[in-house]
Simulated assay, not measured.
Amino acid sequence: MKFLPISFLILALAAATALAYDPDPLQDICLTMRNYNMDFSSYAVFVNGKFCKDPKQTTADDFLFMGLRKPGNTSNPLGSQVTQAFVDQFPGLNTLGISMARIDFAPGGLNPPHTHPRGTELLVVVEGTLLVGFVMSNQLNNTLFTKVLYKGDVFVFPIGLIHFQLNIGNTYTLAFSGLSSQNSGVITIAKAVFGATPPISPEVLTKAFQVDKKVVDYLEAQFWYDNN
Rank of each mutant, 00 (worst) to 15 (best):
T171G: 04
L179M: 14
H163I: 13
E203D: 15
A18W: 14
E203V: 14
V125H: 08
A20T: 14
K147L: 10
T188Y: 13
N141E: 08
K70N: 13
F176E: 10
A20C: 11
P158Y: 00
N94K: 04
E203I: 14
S99P: 09
E121T: 13
T58S: 05
V204C: 00
S181G: 07
Q89A: 13
L4P: 05
P25H: 11
N111R: 09
D217F: 00
K50Y: 02
L166R: 11
P113I: 10
H114K: 14
F134G: 04
G133Y: 03
D217Y: 00
Y150V: 08
T188D: 10
Q210E: 13
Q81A: 12
A101M: 14
Y36K: 03
P5C: 11
P202F: 10
L122D: 06
P199K: 09
N170C: 04
M33S: 11
N167G: 11
T95F: 08
V211D: 04
A221I: 01
L96K: 08
F157C: 08
Q27G: 12
L9W: 05
F223P: 00
H163L: 11
G49S: 12
S41Y: 02
K151R: 10
V132P: 01
F65H: 03
W224S: 06
V154A: 11
Q57G: 03
V148E: 13
V126D: 04
I29G: 03
L26W: 08
Q165C: 09
G92M: 01
V154C: 09
P71M: 03
I162K: 04
H116I: 10
Y225M: 04
V193N: 00
K214F: 01
F86E: 02
L140P: 00
N170K: 15
S75G: 08
K213N: 06
F8T: 14
P202M: 09
L149A: 06
P198D: 02
F145E: 10
K207W: 10
G160W: 01
K191T: 12
A60T: 05
Q57V: 00
W224A: 03
G178F: 09
P71V: 02
N141R: 08
F46Q: 07
L166N: 09
L131S: 11
S42C: 11
N37C: 07
Q182L: 01
R69P: 00
R34V: 01
K50V: 00
D153S: 15
S75R: 15
Q84F: 12
F51C: 06
G109Y: 08
A101G: 14
S180L: 00
R102W: 06
S7D: 09
Y225F: 15
F209C: 05
N76S: 05
E220M: 06
M38H: 06
I168D: 07
T17C: 11
C52L: 02
G128V: 07
L205R: 07
